[in-house]
Design a protein around this nucleic acid. Structure first.
Length: 268
DNA sequence: ATGGTGGTCTTACCA
């Protein structure tokens, strides 16, 4: 069994100890991070190396930034979207074992109709083209990250309050469905789930206490990987720690490596 | 109660 997770940490500098603790307590094998908010020269590489992880990252100062932490070796790293000159560090794609993992920090979009909203839709379309190409090349693909899109009304605490707003607007949801139509499944909906399950809550207005959240952190799986998915989960516990991220980690269990195989490949 | 919080090489901008 292999555990694959995604977490928007909203500054890895602030959240490093939480990430290390969470990796230790959950025994996650692969973790995709978003909003590291660190330039590459400031990435806390040694902390992960000391704990025997492989690490790749694509960061910038102050904003954005993505990274992948892995128990298994990482190869075939891509940090730029074809046909898009973009200084914003929002994507990192890698091979880990026979999985192609694509880690996304989708633009927030600010407000419907704004320049940032247009950038979000344009960026998403370019990424969709990239993923379409990747699907022709690899069968076991996971597309994970902070999508900044709540796919359906049941992913929103109050669809009425949020109607037409950024993160749920029809154009964003249409773009998301168009991505799924390439041959990806929202792993969370492969299984029975509790209602009102969210992955992000605004820091303001006691949104977490009142469970006024959205499910915008997702793990999408190609059919070949979906067939090996045992569970898809949201771990809301880290939101209760001191100085939490506004997002919590999401993770899937994949029936990929038996414990014996994993120990053979990675003797401790 | 009609507002808020939190991160960043901050005093503005992003989420």
């Amino acid at each position: 069994m292999l555990k694959l997770a995604s977490w928007n940490v909203n500054s890895l500098k602030v959240r490093l100890d939480q990430v290390l603790d969470w990796l230790e307590s959950t025994q996650i094998d692969i973790l995709a991070l978003q909003e590291t908010k660190l330039s590459d020269e400031n990435f806390p590489l040694q902390a992960f190396i000391d704990r025997h992880y492989h690490v790749v990252y694509s960061g910038q100062k102050t904003y954005n930034g993505v990274a992948i932490i892995s128990r298994l070796p990482i190869a075939e790293i891509v940090t730029d979207i074809p046909d898009l000159e973009d200084p914003q560090r929002r994507i990192i794609a890698v091979n880990i074992g026979d999985i192609r993992l694509i880690n996304l920090y989708v633009p927030n979009g600010s407000e419907v109709g704004s320049d940032k909203y247009d950038y979000k839709l344009m960026w998403f379309e370019k990424v969709r083209n990239f993923i379409r190409q990747q699907l022709s090349q690899y069968s076991k693909i996971a597309v994970v990250g902070d999508f900044n899109i709540a796919p359906e009304d049941r992913d929103v605490h109050s669809p009425v309050e949020w109607e037409g707003c950024v993160l749920v607007s029809p154009k964003e949801r249409e773009a998301f469905l168009s991505l799924l139509s390439l041959g990806l499944k929202d792993s969370f909906r492969l299984f029975h789930q509790e209602e009102k399950a969210f992955s992000w809550w605004d820091y303001r207005a006691a949104a977490f206490r009142r469970n006024r959240g959205l499910r915008i952190d997702l793990i999408l799986l190609s059919d070949a990987l979906a067939a090996q998915c045992i569970s898809s989960n949201i771990d809301a516990l880290p939101r209760k720690s001191e100085r939490p991220s506004d997002h919590v980690p999401v993770w899937v269990a994949l029936n990929l490596y038996t414990t014996a195989e994993f120990r053979f490949k990675h003797p401790s």
